[in-house]
Design a protein around this nucleic acid. Sequence first.
RNA 1: GCGCCUGUAGCUCAAUUGGAUAGAGCAACGGACUUCUAAUCCGUAGGUUACAGGUUCGAGUCCUGUCAGGCGUGCCA
Length: 578
Amino acid sequence: MGLIFKMNMKAYLANQIQAVLATIEGVPSDFEVQFQVPARADQGDLASNFAMQLAKKVGTNPRAFAERVLSTIEFDPDLIAGVEVAGPGFINFRFSKNYLWNGVVEILMKGVAYGRSTQGAGKKAMVEYVSANPTGPLTVGHGRNAVLGDTMANVLDWVGYDVTREYYFNDAGRQMRVLAQSVRARYLELIWPDCPMKKIGEGEEGIWVPEAFPNGGYQGTYIIEIAATLREEKGDDLIENREWQADEVPEAELVPFKEKAITLIFKDIDQTMRRMGVKMDTFFNEHTLYTNGNVEATLAALRKTGLVFDADGAVWFKTSTFGKEKETVLVKSSGEPTYRLPDMAYHVEKLNRGYDLCIDLFGADHIDTYPDVLNGLKVLGYDAQKIQVVIYQFVTLMKGGEAVKMSTRKANFVTLDDLMDEVGEDVTRYFFLAVSPNTHINFDLDLAKAEAEKNPAFYLQYAHARIHQIITKAAEVGLSLKAEGDLSVLTHDREITLIKALLQFPDEIIGTAKSLQPQRLINYLREVAEAFHAFYHDCRIIGEAEDVAQARYNLACAAQYVVRNGLGILGLSTPEKM
RNA sequence: GCGCCUGUAGCUCAAUUGGAUAGAGCAACGGACUUCUAAUCCGUAGGUUACAGGUUCGAGUCCUGUCAGGCGUGCCA
């Protein structure tokens, strides 16, 4: 039993068929037989379309070709209960009950490891995500990034990769100077309540800020909180000249404001991530790339390719070579690199650290810039295939039926914490995982709140809670997991449907890893939960005949492993009662 | 203007990456608790997949064009 089952069903069928195809003239030698799970139950458990793909090449019609191939194969009745040619030329395979029952045993044996596979074994992967600079709290937009990245990291782990989760950030440069100036202006306001104020923004949108507030400053109230904390800790003497405008303030005076802001904002970001179950392995400061010389080395290497030139005091990358309209600045005339250069240096660093796969999660606003980075790596001789960029579309904030572009600077964002406060951590994760990264999300907090109680996340979790309750109750009447139990009494439609769903779990994880589309896994788990709820409704355990009760109890345990492992990958909690 | 993403049921979204009769949730309607939890189950209704062509055994999916929305097109990140 165990031996036969160890062989993957697809691999078994492919071997049988491939052996026959190899003897037929006209079949390409590199042809690979493909399988899919049919959409409808009456179309069998697994289907192949090879006859339709090959019929023309071998000079016949699909159905005839299918019959011809099948007539020469005798499938192991222990695995396959039926084969038929259907529709335009599909070949539908039906699994034997024996195969299904053995499958349940397999699940129970693997337990918390059921679903794991070895595609990525021996390989290192890095998922770089969140990577928000410390300019403010994480927003709903960052949430999409965080949840997608975290789940992809989990999925890669389950297919065997050694996964590192990295957060890349930059706490220097103009952005941080403006942040420090913003905090300083709010601090000034606190120690000097009568300081001259100005209004920025128009009409009702406008807010009052001290004169020293910088152009493009950060308007969020968290800036005031940071200023207040700083005042509590350091007193009122951090400002030398109250009359200075933002850009008259010397760098040295800004230091304490900047440092406090970075510390407090990162603390806040960290708490938000923890709350969502996002845990990074490493944090990488862009600054490191300057101190270790990688930025300079990368530029020097790029120069040797002849694709770099100097003009107008700046250093340019010849992006027109790669089909872009314009050339791209790598180093500004001020001597300061644009972010593209350290980005290239960073990816060189990643590849040099030995990662076989690097996943980058970017919002749609990076769509035009990452090709520069990849092209840079290519001309430097690196294998850019190892870098997989996942672009997710923007989360647009809806207020009163109108779309507002979220901006940390303008503080018209909804924080991730706000969202979790309103709908909870699990619904928040589900919200981002259920849709394709390519989907534009219109986000309305009021609507999200109103519909939170009906969120499908609970449908999955309820399945887990029910199973837990059964197991608890069943223990009271003396039932326990007995792997040697006879499962051949599992013949009810609900039981069979559930088993078939459970057996697809490993393939679903592999498919999710390949496509980097986590919503696939959610769709699948919904099917599993649906199959379980239906089973629960129609097939009782406690009070049934001993053999039936035992077999169903075992099946419930198998279902629990799938639901629990699946929810774990998605980062959703597994409640024992609801 | 050009590049990328999107357009699917009243609403929010899926669709195994080119497969068979396009599916879920919410909203609507009708049934099912004396049982291991009704946050569940069973059923009804809802569609010219934005539009027009094309490619092939087969198109929501690929190619061309049109329309609509989002993002980009910085010596900002």
